[in-house]
Design a protein around this nucleic acid. Structure first.
Lengths: 215, 215
DNA sequence: GTCTATATGCAGATAGAC
DNA sequence: GTCTATCTGCATATAGAC
């Protein structure tokens, strides 16, 4: 029966998603995926010939849940503050609900960067366009040739760090208290907006006085 | 002969370091480590009884190369700008020379956070001390109870991101050009100092006008 | 489509000679 | 200490019955 087939496939996908994201391709066990899906190993191979293929399907799927959003925000023809707000809000919430995602992506970034780059470029999301948009919309706070890249690295770094470093950061600075940490994460969008809002408006931080002091 | 033994052990450690850092505990193969060290598998087990033990030795070693530095900088009783400068400079350079390190650490952060937390705390580096120092030295830019944690996350995120996301970031925004990317990384300390210097001095960014605008 | 049973291969670990 | 040869176990994958 076709409905049953679809249902089973979905159970597999859900289970595999969890396991792969927690343990990565290498760490995941087909047995564990089968168990969590409530079926047996043989059936896994019936639906997805190999572990690799299963992984590919999962990976592509999860990735496509977050990239289009990025492209869409990028094309919002509004003020940079609003783009930033939308960006921070969406991804911060997404990572709060999917805490394993960031480490999952970074793992893949190192294992197979070409695959990810390929997926991104196939999503109507073009890096040059992004750089150009930033150069155009941001006040010229620095004359570095890499100014847009720096700003991207800043935003993404500040956004991602509390999520990707969570297990350690929470232990060290929050008494390993889940609730406290969630509060911290929840208020982070606002905190970052406060910090960055000024920058994007083009006032506030003076970047022209280079610190050539003994360095 | 003892000198020979030490030499072999060092070869193993060097090889294992590279492999583990690139592939993680799961992804690494004892065969590959043996090959790169120029010996055979049996000898690996002679020196380190199991893969786990070998990994532990490597991990502890690399970790202790970068934590003490942090504690030391933290205790420099100087202006926050100078602490920040020392911090950025040291770790940015370290990660430029050891590009696989960040991902290696994050991998472990998710696999075994307690181990890392333990090592850190055993290094005369106490989280509460750090938080207190920051609260004391930083101008009160925000009244969030987590203000020090936010600032740490900011600095660490901005510092780490270009390293940990390198394979993808370089492909997307630097035509996958190693030289260009190294230039980018090299100028990053200065860029960040320019951006953050103002904040630490206590002027520039107004964080008091919360953006309660339709949000 | 789903199962049980089995094959295949590989990686970690050991035995034992030198 | 260092090697070759071998064992053991486990994980992926397949065969074949229902």
């Amino acid at each position: 029966m076709n409905a049953l087939k679809v249902e089973t496939e979905q159970k597999i996908i859900n289970a595999a998603q969890e396991i792969f994201i927690e343990k990565g391709l290498q760490g995941a066990r087909m047995q564990e995926i089968a168990d969590r899906a409530g079926i047996n190993k043989a059936l896994l191979h019936y639906y997805f010939r190999s572990k690799e293929q299963l992984f590919d399907a999962i990976f592509q799927g999860t990735f496509q849940r977050i990239i289009p959003q990025f492209a869409q925000i990028l094309r919002m023809k509004t003020k940079p503050e609003e783009m930033l707000q939308a960006l921070l809000e969406f991804y911060n919430n997404f990572f709060m609900e999917n805490p394993y995602m960031p480490q999952f992506f970074f793992h893949e970034i190192w294992q197979n960067p070409d695959r990810i780059a390929g997926i991104i470029k196939s999503q109507a999301m073009h890096p040059e366009e992004l750089v150009a948009t930033l150069k155009d919309k941001l006040p010229p706070l620095s004359d570095s040739a890499f100014f847009p890249q720096h700003m991207m690295a800043n935003v993404m770094g500040m956004l991602l760090f509390p999520h990707i470093a969570r297990p350690l950061f929470q232990r060290l600075f929050f008494n390993n208290d889940d609730q406290q940490y969630n509060l911290f994460l929840a208020e982070r969008t606002e905190f970052l907006m406060n910090m960055l809002g000024g920058l994007m408006g083009g006032h506030s931080v003076d970047l022209s006085n280079a610190p050539d002091e003994n360095f």
